[in-house]
Amino acid sequence: MLDAVKVPSKTLVASPERLQEADQDSVIVKQVQAGDVAAFDRLIIKYRERLYGVIYHMTSNREDASDLTQDAFIKAFQAINRFQGQASFFTWIYRIAINSTLSHLRKNKFKSFLSLDTVNSEEPVSQELISALTDKTGADRDTFVHELQEKLNEAMQKLSIKHRTVITLFEIDGLSHQEIAEVMDCSVGTVRSRLHYAKQLLQAEMKAYIS
């Protein structure tokens, strides 16, 4: 049975795994607040890939994503003593990262360009999708994958910042509607609405690949 007392008051996360994570994070955060700076490294290692992934899919630029992820960790480290545990550390650092990214995207609205990471085409998910889209093999297949990747990222960049954020957090990072609402500081209905609209726009942009 879950210990309701340990649940942070503002955290809407209800899954047992997430609660366990929140407890572990809370212990580490207290260690950092007590002066154990090295304990913060555990939080970095735990969340760096997820944070980077979210920021990368929002910006479609790996250099920007790297810088913004580092900045998010630095901001969290500097403000760790002000963290009171009202929300989980996960939610808190996600908020920092998302807000930094949104600010960056607003500032560089007309200066964005793609700088993409390599698609791991050896993964079963990638192989399945690629084989569903094309029968090409070898270099042609790689070219097709690269083209698809560019089209997909361009379509993402055509979405508004908020729609892009919602679809990234939901479809790529796997957060629930409630978690997205908490991170983006909006209602669950707003999240659902944005998600629906973002999918419609993406379908329109990627109709060449979708039946």
Binding site: H57, L116, T118, V119, V125, L152, E171, I172
Partner: peptide, 8 residues
């Protein structure tokens, strides 16, 4: 497609 994008 979004799952594919996750592979980046």
């Amino acid at each position: 497609l979004m799952r594919f994008k996750r592979m980046e």
